[in-house]
Write a protein that binds this DNA or RNA. Structure first.
Lengths: 173, 173
DNA sequence: CAAACTGATTGCTTTTTGCAATCGGTTGCA
DNA sequence: TGCAACCGATTGCAAAAAGCAATCAGTTTG
């Protein structure tokens, strides 16, 4: 919530939504990590988000229409968080943000391989990924066999780097 | 400064740089508004930044290598802030951020015309704009006459909308 | 010499962030 | 049936950041 509306500038309004240290981290973990539950986001967060902040941001993102929440039929207490189309269209922004960080900031090799592949894949890969997310989160049909999923591809590359057999990059240790 | 290094993830590191409500606003005003001086940024800011926060962010962005400061020869007290290449390569991110905000947030017509044109111009227009910024801020040569500058084009469109004779859009009032 | 302007700085209050502990309810297992 | 582990949060508290208003010393302008 908390729509300040400091101005109607698109960049300012986007910043009022994402101008904090956690909202995009949560969306990153949902989009690239495939996390859907509170505990997954809490314990799987590499940066160590606190539970009250996670709860606050989930609430806020729901209020903004970026996430939705539904009951998990397998567990009466479990909630499943889903991305809306609004969130899925952030993929190009996250790709650019990762690409920029990879060039200018002290990223680690393991964690930047995903950003590198996503950058090389370009808009075509981003579109494919967004279609996969629409399938997972919105129940949209997935077009006929387009090979391994983007997330699986990124994950496999990450694991290869961790294992020290980086394809095209020098081993970390 | 304040490099937490919560993790070496490119998106996280980018967020540690821009995950606040003001840093990108300042860069937006420098990039699209052409502002170079403290007072220009302070008084020209549509969102009303406070002087202490502006001073803090300028210092921080300099420490990160995103801005540089130089004396203005015409005025012994005046400082000129310049974008580094690191800042100039943010243009695509700002373009995407503006495009996303324009679609999903309650932007005003006057302030979103720039984002619209920049989106339609695509990477080609962004590259041209970045070259112009390199010329202004880094003293790089500008390639032979490529028509009116991107900033001038955006500014003209903005003024046209304000004047109510929006090309292709309905008048605001 | 005075007024206006330069890039800031200081003191202060309000708001946000982040940590640690905890909550009531659910589930799985012995 | 009991009980530990897990579920999505909530609460209390301290620290940090944001934001406001006033002010600063030096510079330029008139």
């Amino acid at each position: 919530m908390s729509m300040d509306r400091r101005s109607g500038c698109p960049i300012n309004l986007s910043l009022e939504v994402f101008g904090d240290r956690w909202s995009l981290i949560i969306l990153r973990d949902m989009i690239f990590g495939g996390r859907r539950h509170f505990r997954e986001l809490l314990n799987g967060s590499m940066e160590g988000i606190a539970s009250n902040i996670l709860a606050d941001r989930l609430k806020r993102l729901m209020g903004l229409g970026i996430l939705t929440k539904a009951d998990d039929p397998s567990h009466k207490q479990k909630a499943i968080y889903s991305l809306t189309e609004m969130a899925i269209t952030l993929v190009p922004i996250l790709a650019h943000l990762g690409a920029w960080g990879r060039v200018w900031l002290p990223v680690s090799a393991e964690l930047s391989i995903r950003a590198e592949l996503l950058e090389k894949g370009g808009p075509q890969m981003w579109d494919k990924f967004m279609d996969e997310l629409r399938h997972e989160h919105l129940g949209m049909p997935l077009d006929t066999s387009a090979g391994p999923s983007v997330r699986a591809t990124l994950q496999a590359a990450y694991e290869a780097v961790v294992a020290g057999k980086a394809p095209g990059a020098s081993p970390a240790a």
